[in-house]
Design a protein around this nucleic acid. Structure first.
Lengths: 202, 202
DNA sequence: ACCAACCTACCGAACACACGCTAGGTCGGT
DNA sequence: ACCGACCTAGCGTGTGTTCGGTAGGTTGGT
């Protein structure tokens, strides 16, 4: 467990501070966006000066990428053990309340980078299609297994589902008092009805 | 038709320029948001200097409100003659392509004002609930008329629909090549199936 | 055990720049 | 003469970033 690199203790301390900055940055960025958050603000809440922050991240944009990379890694780790998409969808609502500070990050930053040519535009666009394709593949799997009906386009349905999730996130961020669980159960229930093969209608 | 006010021609010219600024501002704001758009940029594209712009709008924030007011008035005029909500929903997709520059405005600015305490937070939150309530009232009307089944909560369903519209807007802004019409027809079709009373299943 | 060389973490001060906005003025129509 | 439309010039502030420096832990040689 002991680190054998040179200057191990020093580097460990730096890494610790680095993680703290990352955490603060994530929290602030997910509410105020990139343009609404200053390096000064992040540095202050992390207990460092702006110059100290830039010792760990060479620029604001690079810090932004680092935050997104951390989240991407976190999500990927969970995406591997994905089961039935409908069951998965039902669990999304829980995660909102368990970790509210994680929720807005992508939605907020994505909105700031809608314009083609925006610094993170391409990153978010490919991320979007990865999400859609992952979902579509889940549907196709269900279709091949005979659990889902085959007369609907997986991609089209996936675009719809991603849109719903994005939208409900925005709504919830704007006003956390919306009936989140009810809406989710309603939607997943209607999804199940649509996906179920027409054979079993007693 | 002729204006009898004093300085009529002058005022008309000013009003003209004012409208042009408003149009440019709307276009830019709907892609880059408020923080991503400077009055210098708006002024330049409208053919005025920043000072000239501030002659018509006393501050950047006031210009923002003016843009939003204009759009609100436009939307209200259309909301009055609203018919069946499903039919209405089908027409949304057309409007995206007819007037793409109108689309992102609210979504983008809303995202910038998610944080409670943001300058336009309250405005967007009440606007959100107005949208939900309008939709819910449309559902209730259909229920009373016997066209819709009565065993689903109008508010819950409305929150879902608003989420879908918000999300599909975001998706379309990020990548206009998504199968917009297909997704819309799919969703509205599934809505009709859900709303239809269980009597007619031949 | 000691020491010089080295490295990492971090700060204080300053820089260049862009932003929103103001003050004062010019021009032309009424 | 008056008024509205507009411009030029500039001010104050906040931003991201750079530069030079300090403190102190770490290393390898003697």
């Amino acid at each position: 467990m002991t680190d054998q690199r040179p200057y191990a203790a020093l580097l460990a301390k730096g890494e610790d501070r680095r993680q703290r900055i990352l955490a603060v940055a994530q929290r602030l960025l997910s509410r105020q966006g990139s343009r609404g958050t200053t390096i000064v603000q992040i540095a202050r809440e992390a207990g460092v000066t702006p110059a100290g922050l830039l010792h760990h991240f060479e620029s604001k944009e690079q810090l932004l990428h680092a935050v997104l990379d951390a989240r991407d890694a976190f999500d990927e780790a969970r995406a591997d053990r994905m089961g039935d998409i409908v069951e998965e969808l039902e669990r999304v609502a829980e995660r909102y309340r368990e970790a509210p500070e994680l929720v807005g990050l992508f939605s907020v930053l994505q909105m700031e980078n809608i314009e083609p040519g925006a610094p993170l535009h391409d990153r978010f666009r490919t991320r979007y299609w990865v999400a859609v394709e992952t979902l579509a593949e889940g549907i196709r799997r269900g279709q091949r297994a005979g659990r889902y009906r085959t007369d609907l386009d997986p991609t089209v349905k996936s675009v719809e589902i991603v849109a719903f999730i994005t939208g409900i996130q925005t709504s919830w961020l704007l006003d956390p008092s919306i009936p989140l669980t009810e809406v989710f159960t309603e939607y997943t229930a209607s999804l199940t009805r649509q996906l179920a093969p027409p054979s079993d209608t007693p």
